[in-house]
Amino acid sequence: MSARLLVQTLRNPTSLPADCDWTGLIAAARAEQLVGSLAFRLEGRKVPERVERLLAMHRADAGRVRVQALWEAEMARRALAPIGIPVVLLKGTAFHAAGLEAAQGRNVGDLDILVPRDSLGEVERALIAHGWERMKEADGYDDLYYRQWMHELPPLIHRERDRMADVHHTILPLTARPKPDAAALIAASIALPDGLRMLSPEDMIVHAAAHLIADGDMAGGLRNLWDIDRLLREFSRVDGFWPRLRERAGRHGLGPAVERAVRLAHDLYATPIPPSWRRWSAMDAPFKRRLLARNGWGQPTRPVTRFGFYVRGHLMRMPPMMLVRHLVTKARAKPDQSVSSTPISSE
């Protein structure tokens, strides 16, 4: 299992076996969006020459990823500055903007921002006025689904830079059982030097855990868990972090998700955690199985486990009758490409 080799290498880069399957390790790392992180973890280690050339390429590319992510954030800042609302960067862009250790080698796809829910309309209009375009047909099923039930606007894409922007107003779909306190997320956010903001350290972990455990089908889970490991290592150097995290997770109704994410990070990446967080749960095992479901060709494995988490992802997002309606609509709409990509399969 190469996901296991990947996890082991990220956790302890000196542990590589002499007959390491390098091609499998890199294929798994690319499939899990972790090749940049791997390249930095192996910097300065003795690896075959061809592999070193490849890792050096990925380290160099990380610089481009960073510039592109920060530029996208700056473009959004310029577009939204006249409205005068707080714009909170989320996920990878925030890690880069704040210079966190989690940013090292971290790939960034879309720009994710959080804004107050009552300013969504204004934000969307401002972005559209600055070159972003709707990807979903206006008033189509997906568009309306996003607007009614999701924690973000339907995705926008910039017509010149071809980069996507996800505008969030909270961190979980409105149909999910936990109801995070979005106003508290924004109130506790921290100003960055350039006028943008990021979540507080505790909220950043809560968001990462919500994304990993309480939403979706765990696609990209190993990367999200690596984020959590890096963030926990950095944030827990400040006294009182762990009790604050527990308090904050409870406030957002995400106590169990955060605890599970912390335990999994400890289990897979050896994240140092206090004894009071080590309450093992038998239900952690399937999560771990799902996280490691990748072979040395970069292929997904364990279809049954994957399908289980796919179903779980849907059930968490939708009450049963709503799910039935959704699936019927999607099945009927199948020949029409414009509605075939469902918000449910989005990350």
Partner: peptide, 12 residues
């Protein structure tokens, strides 16, 4: 041939 490859292609 090569011991390690830069890129993997799969035909599935």
């Amino acid at each position: 041939g090569c011991e390690t490859a830069d890129f993997t292609v799969r035909l599935e």
